[in-house]
Design a protein around this nucleic acid. Structure first.
Lengths: 388, 388
DNA sequence: CTGTTAGCGCGTTCAA
DNA sequence: TTGAACGCGCTAACAG
């Protein structure tokens, strides 16, 4: 029964021998070619099943020049937002018969390049970039991607980038931030703190939206209200305290909540979600609203506000970004802007596959954002329709 | 200069022609063979650079039977905990020159099987299973994995499974839960609610630890204190309310915090993190401690407690699991058990690679857990040393 | 409808 | 130290 095959893996020759046909015929039934008689097809199918034959993808890849794999680059797959994108992108790819090679690149340009190299060496059919971090501010820093895009299609999620073979799908962050900031202004807020970290494309858009809204309202943006902090709670908290301490009439010149202050460790004190005015609000707060460029920033702000007994949203309104699970873990829950990352990720995968299969696809796709209203902020009726 | 090559991709023949040597020699310099003269080596290297030659992995894979890829199966890459594992596993794999094919399988057995099939068809060199969900309770449901393990090594993170070629790395969840529950009991707590969802290996261990500790203290576990709820906040919250309502002297028979109750929407009310006893504690609480099998459960419990003005940790102590970012988003922050997922994930990748490279590796590896003490609970001095 | 055969690009003997 | 030649398993032209 055995014919050639020095490895133990059964190959197409074994099948052809077993079925008494040529390898070409076997190949045909494998590739759904209809030019094969029903009878022989069944014979072959039976042999395949009998021998437990599995075609060798390397050999097939060699001939076809493709193994139907897509590379996914992401700066950090453990990030709440990015992880969600990874998930949905992979699902969509799988639905179309592609598998995903994942690589976490970090923020560093050189390691991004290294990761891409690794991916390309794997002969991927396309590339998905998750996170606007890849749309480097310095245009020439994107060149390695543009170069890659000459051989395989590239889709960027949540960022914009010019170049042949580069497709982008992003949310209208500018608009979302503009509307949100405007709404806060209309509600009478003036001292709006803006917390962020990323200088990515998306990050720049958001900040620009904030600035534009302030400008439109005739308010000069005080640089002290723009706080940039690494994306960990401890760092954000530290930056916040430092910056606030430098402000006139600062929050931190007041006394912190005695309940916290009494113990050596404030976390060990008792807490409830209750509000009270029994402890006098001991200072004039230099901040009456906070916008976080991601939910984690809003969380940090909320926690600090609560520590100092500031009433949320009465005295400070807080808005996050991404509508991540974090926004539902706080008490009150965060109002946050949902940029529909699942839609973006699925869209990205779908665009990529359509391009690979030769379809004509627009290079830019925009998905709208939506304000999710929860405890830390509410739009007035008038401005409630944010989505464009 | 060009010799063959109908594709545009430059191949080893192009290089050999350019360098004036045979392809065998090119292959030798590519594979670090030392049996090549320094002079020719440089000549070849120069040609490679000049032509921008990139070896074709498919061809190499065909001959070698490997493309140095590892399959990663994960039920849900967007889950906070699992995502972190994915991240660290991928990093470690990359460090060793392997790339990761990621597939999100969901919890459904048939789709797990389908995903594995897809992975195997890609001729992966090894497989990493992230999440104890793969260690199905029904042993025969693991057979598809055991079968796979006959051809490639399989490493399971956070679960246990017997089988040749199957390696496991897990944390001592039983011990952690036993110690934690015991500590709560020693602190005088008796009505300890246990919230969970997964019946995975890890989930079973945790629950067993809880039960064992209760048993050791001579306390019968009231089934009403075991609440199983899907892993979304809304679901957990709903289950909690329903179950609590069925208890005598229930929490929910009391009045909720008037501040919340006054508005149409309780989230729109003002909040601070302050505590107050000005509103009378209106009921005898049937629960004095909560253990969540994952942080999200603890978050839900904390929020509910706060909504009803229950003092945490004075009246209810709460402990989560995983030490995820969620545990730091609440106010007070959650005490939680850290199962060191980064260590497990990195360890898994490292084990897998060592096995692939022929090393002898023990089939089971255990990493200890650690209680992270934050606001919702503190161990007494005596029991503070939890890690084994 | 089916079989034959020529690559696909690279590793790897075996000779030289 | 180098080169010629074969094989890896499969696809796709071409011939029948």
């Amino acid at each position: 029964m055995e014919i050639n095959n020095n490895h133990n893996q059964v190959n197409i020759y074994d099948v052809s021998a077993h079925a008494g046909v040529s390898i070409a015929t076997v190949s045909r039934v494998l590739n759904q070619s209809d030019k094969v008689a029903e009878k022989t097809r069944n014979k072959v199918l039976a042999s395949i099943k009998a021998l437990g034959y599995q075609p060798n993808v390397f050999a097939r890849g060699l001939g076809l020049g493709s193994m139907k794999t897509i590379g996914i680059m992401v700066t950090d797959a453990s990030d709440t937002f990015l992880a969600k994108c990874v998930y949905h992108a992979e699902q969509e790819l799988k639905n179309h018969g592609y598998s995903a090679i994942l690589t976490c690149t970090g923020e560093d340009l050189s390691s991004k390049k290294r990761s891409l190299k690794g991916l390309l060496s794997k002969q991927i059919d396309g590339l998905i970039l998750i996170g606007s971090s890849y749309a480097e501010e310095n245009i020439s820093d994107q060149d390695y991607l543009r170069k890659a895009a000459k051989s395989i299609p590239v889709v960027l999620i949540n960022g914009r980038m010019d170049g042949e073979g580069i497709y982008c799908i992003y949310s209208n962050d500018f608009e979302a931030m503009f509307q949100t900031t405007s709404a806060l202004l209309e509600a009478g807020r003036r001292r709006i703190l803006y917390l962020y970290w990323a200088d990515s494309y998306s990050g720049r858009q958001k900040l620009a939206g904030y600035r534009a809204a302030m400008g439109a309202a005739g308010i000069r943006v005080d640089d002290r209200y723009l706080i940039k902090a690494p994306k960990e709670l401890a760092s954000i908290d530290a930056c916040l305290r430092e910056q606030l301490a430098a402000m006139p009439d600062t929050l931190l010149h007041g006394q912190s909540n005695p309940v916290y202050a009494s113990g050596k460790d404030r976390d060990s004190a008792s807490h409830t979600g209750k509000n009270t005015l029994s402890i006098a609000y001991p200072f004039i707060c230099p901040v009456d609203a906070v916008i976080g460029a991601e939910d984690i920033f809003a969380v940090a702000a909320l926690k600090l506000a609560q520590e100092y007994g500031v009433l949320v949203p009465d005295q400070i309104q807080i808005i996050g970004y991404n509508n991540s699970i974090l926004s539902q873990c706080t008490m009150p829950e965060l109002s946050t802007i949902d940029n529909h990352c699942a839609d973006m990720a699925k869209g990205a995968a779908s665009i990529l596959i359509r391009v690979i299969e030769g379809e004509q696809v627009p290079q830019e796709t925009m998905v709208p954002c939506r304000l999710v209203q929860r405890g830390t902020y509410r739009l007035s009726e008038r401005t409630a329709a944010l989505s464009t």
